[in-house]
């Protein structure tokens, strides 16, 4: 799965990451936990409720399925223009 990170998250982890997702990772919440294991230095930032997930250009909540999803993006709070 491709993961895109924006803003400060892109600095902490990298703007583009590709990881293998085990079948047990069913939701956005599970994906966050998996990413926190891969990137322990970013565990706190990944657990921040203000970090929102986006799939196919739509903001999704924590229970959203990631099964079969090719790309998930994570948005820190917006700065505005």
């Amino acid at each position: 799965m491709q993961i895109g990170f924006f803003g400060r998250m892109g600095e902490i982890i990298g703007r583009e990451v590709e990881i293998e997702i085990p079948a047990s990772t069913g939701t956005v919440a599970g994906l966050r936990r998996l990413l926190a294991e891969h990137f322990p230095a970013a565990a706190d930032a990944l657990g921040d409720a203000r970090l929102r997930a986006c799939i196919a250009d739509t903001m999704v909540d924590e229970s959203h399925s990631v099964a079969g999803v090719e790309r998930v993006e994570f948005f820190p709070p917006l700065s505005g223009g």
Partner: peptide, 19 residues
């Protein structure tokens, strides 16, 4: 509301800005 993430780069540090 605009979808931007802004970082201010200063001489001594950088900071991500929120509204």
């Amino acid at each position: 509301d605009a979808v931007f993430w802004k970082r201010e780069d200063r001489a001594s540090s950088s900071a991500w800005i929120e509204p």
